[in-house]
């Protein structure tokens, strides 16, 4: 079983495979990374079986290698995701995502009275604790737990 998955994962020649995404979150990941507006060919795999974690999703990005740190924002919804860099059908590098200190652009402030909800301002949040994940709006200073985060 595990071997089969490796095969499927390696099925692009060059690029990045994001593995271990919680089931059902693949589309959100694509959105967070703003991949739908990019030039790269994207493949989304959903509901793969994973021995360790039950079902999982996979996102493959052809011909683009995500740099470490570039995808850290997805840790908010896929905390155990791994980035596999593929060259010539082989995984040459495997990294885990980490919760970033600063999250730009992707989250909407939960405070309706926040300036970012009224003016065209790029949102910015400081991660003030990772366990449990809690963020603070750079502008209105509202503190929000993970469960209440909404993505733009």
């Amino acid at each position: 079983m595990a071997k089969k998955i490796t095969l499927k994962v390696s099925a692009i020649k060059q690029g990045t495979v994001i593995d271990h995404i919680p089931s059902g979150q693949a589309f959100k990941i694509v959105k967070i990374l703003n991949l739908e507006n990019g030039k790269e060919f994207i493949m989304i795999g959903m509901n793969f079986g994973s021995k360790k974690y039950g079902r999982k999703d996979i996102v493959k990005i052809e011909n683009r290698e995500l740099k470490s740190g570039e995808a850290d924002a997805i840790s908010l919804i896929a905390p155990i995701a791994t980035l596999n860099i593929i060259r010539n059908f082989k995984v040459v590098k495997k990294t885990k995502v980490e919760v970033p200190k600063l999250i730009k652009r992707i989250i909407r402030c939960s405070n309706p009275n926040c300036i970012t909800r009224h003016e065209d301002v790029q949102t910015k949040f400081h991660v003030i604790s990772t366990k449990p994940l809690t963020i603070k709006c750079h502008y209105c200073e509202r503190i929000t737990p993970l469960e209440e985060i909404t993505f733009l």
């Binding site: 300036i115 009224h118 709006c137 750079h138 209105c140």
Partner: peptide
């Protein structure tokens, strides 16, 4: 300003010093 975070945005919009005299329920 009645909106929270407005003073921070104001400070980021100019090189001149900004003092917050109240931004909504925030600071």
């Amino acid at each position: 300003h009645p909106l929270e975070g407005s003073a921070r945005l104001a400070a980021e919009s100019t090189d001149k010093p900004v003092i917050n005299a109240g931004d909504g329920a925030n600071q």
